[in-house]
Amino acid sequence: MKRQAGDPGRRSGTDMTEGKTMTHSPPPDDKAKYQRVAYYPGCALEGTAHAYDASTRAVGKALGLELDEVPDWNCCGAMEVKNIDPKVQTYLSSRVLSIAANEMHAPVVMAPCNGCYHNLKKAEYDLGHDDASRETVGKISQQAGHAAYQAGQVETIHALDWLKHGVGEAELRTRVSKSLNGLKVANYYGCMYTRPRHIFPEKDCGPGSDSLYQPHFMDDLLAAAGAENVDFPLKTACCGGAHTLSDSDTSTKLVLNILRAAEAAGADVIATECPTCHAGLEMHQVRAEKVFGEKTTVKMLYFTQLLGVALGLSPRSVGVHENVSDGRAALAEKGIA
């Protein structure tokens, strides 16, 4: 049956996505597959989210995992290019996948940025289900002089999957030298890690897989590092990241909801896993204070920064001082750093 882009197929009964078949069984136990993965940092991690890149690499190194950066990678298209032309976005993401598959021969590509991760997964879905996407990507790839990516060549994972499957809580617990004991953490996953569900067929597959509606991989890892996770209802709420600058008032309201909810839940820090969310929370925390007179004090830290500190790395080496919201005092108060 010929399908169009974005068409997750006909659903029947309780089987919500036809694409979810037995080929997407719960994540395998073989840690080996995740010990050495292709690494796609993306544009933000070379800029405002430099600390996320540094802490991801540092945590990987401390845990004995290896990252091979995808050579000559390009922007995945983020949340913007699709509004100009969705198939260009599919091509941009597919080019990264193509390099990982055809030049690096890597079975797994890891992206710590939610936007990159989402777009690679979306490209994987569209190229597996939509003839028109395959045709356009094939044509542009040919003109650009590289092999077109074929769905299924590479497995795309998030930094959370990488640490959860490649290391796991049991091992992580034994590697923690500076427990996050006493630190109350609200885990914030954002939009792009779980929505829309049809591009994440490996989620909601029972034990070992992450949940679409109550994601917990970050909670699991940070709990293993000793943190106390608070009950945070806005885990997958939207921070308005797509309109952080173009509709700032809306973004400030959305961010303020998240910050207030985290504070109400008793959190000292919000753990983030996305450079756009992280920057949005930091920027609009300042903006809410300056423009609306609404002050909040909860601090934002990338989850990799928290894990790095727990593994005994210095806060400086995981870039805690680079964050706009200065989390050093929050960590020092608990005697962590």
Partner: peptide, 14 residues
Amino acid sequence: SSSTHFDEEFSEQV
């Protein structure tokens, strides 16, 4: 819209 301006600036750079 300001959003379109943002999308265009972004996409042109990419």
